[in-house]
Computed example of a mutant assay.
Amino acid sequence: MRNFFSNKKLIIIMVLVIVVVSMITASLTFGQKRARPTIIHQAGNDGLGVIGNVVSMPINGIRNIDDNVQSLFNTYQENRQLKSHLDDLAQTKAQISALKKENKDLKQQVKLNKTLTDYHQMTASVISRSPNNWQNYLLINKGALSGIKKDMPVMSGSGLIGRIVEVNQTNSKVSLISTDKSLSNKFAVEITKDDGTDTSGIIGRYDKDDNLLVMTNVDSPEKIKAGQQVITSGLGGLTPRGLYVGKVVKVKKDDYGLVSSVFVKPATDLNNFTIVTVISRDVEHG
């Protein structure tokens, strides 16, 4: 029974196809012979038009859907490509910025090294700096294999930033001049005054709020004023004399009108450097 209905449907479809083809043929034949088609001919043509519209509507609809889907897919692909380009651009900008910073640091180190002609110099990179000890310590990528020794001064930019306190084979630990560790050896410094005399003291602490070094234990505090240079004094034997530290920015006096603290702006931004120069301490003290 099922085969019968299937065959019946097939026969009906074939008959419809034959009728449609016959009508198209007749339409073409009679249309060519007559100036104006008969009413039956017109009805056949109208019927064919209706059938054509009915058949073409879903086909055109499917075609439009396919075009829309393709257009949407193309838009999605373009958006992905644009996003990828933007990500690449952001990454490139970040790399360029990092390279510019590194290039600037290297130029500063080259300029610094030219002024340290009396010292043996070793350039190194900062490889680690813990946020918990940001103002106290950092790690550089040179150690005993490169000739690094304990207590060697470390400079960056144009000024002193610390000294070596621990040496491993391939890296070393630097104690910064801004350290607040009480057991650290403090840096002995001096102020070069306008009259040619010097005032000695030590870097006693670091003012984190203003990013200033604070010089304490100041002797002969007379005639200290802003703008005067601060250098290492060489006292104590750990650091050679004459390494630039910074400039005086203000002087604080105690209740008796005596100088108790001298605030020094470091020659180098102690929060922002990546390249350092380690210099030999085996030099003559001036």
Rank of each mutant, 00 (worst) to 15 (best):
I39E: 12
R241I: 00
R36E: 14
S97F: 04
R281T: 07
D282K: 08
Q228H: 02
L213R: 09
F273D: 06
T123D: 01
Q169V: 04
A35R: 06
I224R: 03
S156K: 08
G242T: 02
N211K: 14
D195L: 07
Q81Y: 09
V249K: 13
G61V: 10
S130G: 03
S27C: 09
S280P: 02
I164G: 04
N60I: 15
I127T: 07
F30I: 12
N171T: 04
P131L: 04
A124P: 00
D269M: 02
N141W: 01
I39D: 14
V251Y: 06
F187G: 02
N68F: 14
D209Q: 15
D269A: 13
S27K: 04
R63G: 06
V276W: 02
Y119F: 15
M155G: 10
A98F: 05
N53E: 09
K114E: 14
S146L: 03
L99T: 09
N7I: 09
D210R: 15
V69S: 12
G204Y: 06
V174D: 06
S6Y: 10
H285G: 00
K83T: 09
P221F: 07
F73I: 11
D195E: 08
I65E: 11
N79Y: 11
F263R: 07
Q91P: 01
S146E: 10
K265Y: 08
V20R: 05
K247Q: 13
T117F: 13
H120F: 02
A124S: 05
T170N: 14
L16Q: 03
V17A: 15
N45T: 13
L48R: 01
T115A: 10
V21W: 01
Q42W: 11
I275L: 03
S175A: 04
M57V: 13
T274V: 05
L16N: 13
S128Q: 11
L72D: 10
Q91G: 14
I40S: 14
G201R: 02
H85L: 14
Q32P: 00
G52Q: 05
S260Y: 01
N113D: 12
S261Q: 15
L235N: 13
I51W: 10
S6M: 08
K149Q: 12
K225G: 01
G201W: 02
G227F: 04
I59H: 09
V110Q: 10
I40L: 14
R129L: 00
E166Q: 08
